[in-house]
Each structure stands twice: as structure tokens, then as C-alpha cells.
């Protein structure tokens, strides 16, 4: 295909991505270095019968004019990144100096909102992804040994948790796990503690969210692995059986290596998706106990006034996180690409 023809074919989609993905990133990066103008103050001297007093008031007109002239606000450099709502350099430094042990230091770090969101996002991502891969593999192996007619039915029901909007899926689970809901009461009965509420405890909330994450994403891993199992050469399995491999050894040394490229694929997709986690926190009404980076950004934008600079700074740091997550894959692809030439 000629360069010209390619250009015209690719133009609409390229333009859409340029305008609505690339440009917003640039705009977010710029915004993160600016902060809204402070109100313009004027000091006037009021002289009355009891002498003169100096009064400071906000000059509304001048403030509005200044804000209209420079809608971005004033340049703030890295100060937004370093303030208490984000990297909180001062507070971290104080915590480091006043803490006796590493544990105490991390405890203090957990009180800072940005670090709390980061901690939850990372815990969620790295707890959910391996669990769902293992669960998906187990379901795929079990379903593969079933009769043909049953498989379609099971795949239908398995797809449901993945296909419903994450907010709705998490709401359904949340209502079941509510202390008055069916699972919530069952857990109270099992634990023999009528006052037990999953919502009230931070560790239990985290577990609840992770369970939701596994529930909603395991079907994806299952379907991909199940498709991979269909291409498993039967002579390899038979050969291993002749060599006396047990069932577990067959899975460990024949099936899993065969599925390894798919495991990498699922892990990559799920790492990217779980890092975006947001809807479960809204659905489970869990923001008091768990906040993710995405939630942190949206929280800044949902109030009366948009805290654009703060949201932008978090966005930029989230993007850095995505880049770090993605870097091994990109490096490998690049090496493969170089190798091919």
C-alpha cells in the first residue's frame, strides 16, 4: 500500500485518537503544572469617626478579569505534585524522621490519601490478576472434560459476570453482601457474630473488592484458556501418559507450557484493566476504606468546583504507573522487532 493511500485510510481513526487521547494527555500534563489564581486582594483605608482602619477585601472584578485572561491559572511548577494531597514530600520526610521502625513509617504513609490510593490499586492489581488466572485455568480444565452439549450452557452462564457493566455487577454483589443481604447474613451466622458488617472493616472491604475483581474477570481467563485447550495436541498427552505421568504431572508439564503464551496475554490485559479499577469502589460504597487512583481522580472532578490541577497531577502519576507496568512488554516487543530486521 502506498504511503498516500495509507494516510487517507488511517486519517479518520488517527485523527480521533490524536484529538481525544493524545491531546488530552498533553493538556493534562500542562494543567498539572498550573494552579488557579488566588483572589486579588485590595486594601482600603476606611476612615470613620473613631479613626482609620485598614480593611482587606476581595476585588471581585479584578479576580474575574485575571481568571479570564489566563484561564490556566498561574504556573506552579512541581508544587502540586509535592503537596499534601499527592506525594506529600514534607509529611513523608517528617514521618521518616519521627518513626522508630519501618512498620510505623508505612503506617503513617497509609494516612496520606495518595499513598493509600496507590497501595490499594497495587494490592488489588497484584492480588486479583494471579488469582483469576489460576481460577480461570481450573474452570477451563474442568469444563474441557465435560460432555459437548453441557459446555455451551456453562460458557453462557460463565460469561455473565464479565459482560455486565462493572458498576452493576458490583452493586449486585454488594446487596448480597450487605449485612441484611443473603450472603451477609450467612456470613454473620457462620461467624456467629450478629454485628459483623463487611462494610465497616477496612481489611474485609479490601477482600470483598478483590473477590469481586476475581469474580468479574475469571470468565475472561476461562474462555481464553478453554480455547487454547482445544488446540492441545492429543499425542503429547498420550505420550506423557505412556511415560507414566500422573494427572497432575500432565497438567504441570504438558498443558501449562502449551498455554503459557495465553497466560502472558491474559496477565497483560488484566494488569492493564485492574490498574483502572474504579466502579467496584463506587458500587460497594467503599471510598471510606479503599480508594484507587482512578477514584482519586474522579473524586477531584465530582465536587462543586473541579480541582483540575489536582486531578491532572494524579492523572500524570497514574500514567507513569501504567508506563512502568507496561515497560517489560514494550521492551520485549521492541527486542523481537529489532531481532526480526
Amino acid at each position: 500500500m502506498k504511503h498516500r493511500t495509507f494516510f487517507w485510510f488511517f486519517l479518520p481513526t488517527g485523527l480521533a485518537m490524536l484529538l481525544f487521547i493524545a491531546a488530552p494527555i498533553v493538556s493534562v500534563v500542562i494543567q498539572s503544572f498550573y494552579t488557579p489564581h488566588e483572589a486579588v486582594l485590595v486594601t482600603v483605608e476606611n476612615c470613620g469617626p473613631f479613626g482609620c482602619k485598614e480593611e482587606t477585601t476581595i476585588d471581585q472584578e479584578a479576580t474575574r478579569e485575571l481568571r479570564e485572561a489566563e484561564p490556566l491559572g498561574r504556573f506552579a511548577g512541581f508544587s502540586i505534585y509535592l503537596d499534601r494531597g499527592h506525594l506529600a514530600v514534607t509529611e513523608v520526610g517528617q514521618a521518616w524522621q519521627s518513626s522508630q521502625s519501618v512498620g510505623e513509617f508505612f503506617g503513617k504513609l497509609g494516612n496520606l490519601p495518595f499513598y493509600r490510593a496507590l497501595a490499594f490499586t497495587l494490592t488489588y492489581t497484584f492480588a486479583v490478576t494471579p488469582t483469576l488466572i489460576v481460577l480461570g485455568l481450573m474452570i477451563a480444565l474442568a469444563v474441557n472434560s465435560l460432555h459437548r452439549h453441557l459446555k455451551g450452557l456453562i460458557i453462557f452462564f460463565s460469561l455473565l459476570p464479565m459482560i455486565v457493566p462493572p458498576l452493576l455487577g458490583s452493586l449486585v454483589l454488594f446487596w448480597m453482601l450487605d449485612s441484611r443481604g443473603i450472603l451477609g447474613s450467612a456470613i454473620q451466622w457462620l461467624a456467629n457474630d450478629p454485628g459483623l458488617s463487611l462494610k465497616a472493616s477496612t481489611p474485609l472491604t479490601w477482600i470483598m473488592l478483590i473477590v469481586y475483581g476475581v469474580w468479574s474477570s475469571a470468565p475472561f481467563a476461562f474462555v481464553v484458556f478453554y480455547a487454547g485447550l482445544q488446540t492441545l495436541p492429543s499425542d503429547q498427552i498420550e505420550a506423557s501418559q505412556i511415560d507414566g505421568a500422573t494427572r497432575w504431572q500432565q497438567v504441570r508439564f504438558v498443558v501449562v507450557p502449551h498455554l503459557m503464551p495465553l497466560v502472558t496475554f491474559v496477565a497483560l490485559i488484566q494488569l492493564m484493566d485492574n490498574f483502572k479499577v474504579l466502579e467496584p469502589i463506587v458500587g460497594f460504597n467503599a471510598e471510606a476504606h479503599a480508594q484507587s487512583l482512578s477514584f482519586f481522580i474522579l473524586n477531584d472532578l465530582s465536587g462543586e468546583t473541579w480541582l483540575l490541577s489536582s486531578a491532572s497531577a494524579t492523572s500524570v502519576m497514574t500514567l507513569v504507573g501504567v508506563a512502568i507496568l507496561l515497560s517489560p512488554v514494550l521492551l520485549r516487543t521492541w527486542r523481537d522487532f529489532k531481532g526480526k530486521q
Partner: peptide
């Protein structure tokens, strides 16, 4: 084409929440 696909993959990985702050003002 290889680089365009890689860029698309990077775009795919970015949480939509990080973009919305860029939309609001304009």
C-alpha cells in the same frame, strides 16, 4: 504500522479516568 499498533496498545492501557481531566476545560 508496527509503531502505530504499539501506540494503540499504549492508549489501550491508559485508564480513561486520566483523560477526563483534559476534556473538561475545553
Amino acid at each position: 504500522t508496527f509503531w502505530l499498533l504499539i501506540i494503540a496498545l499504549i492508549f489501550r492501557a491508559m485508564p480513561p479516568a486520566t483523560l477526563v481531566a483534559g476534556y473538561l476545560l475545553p
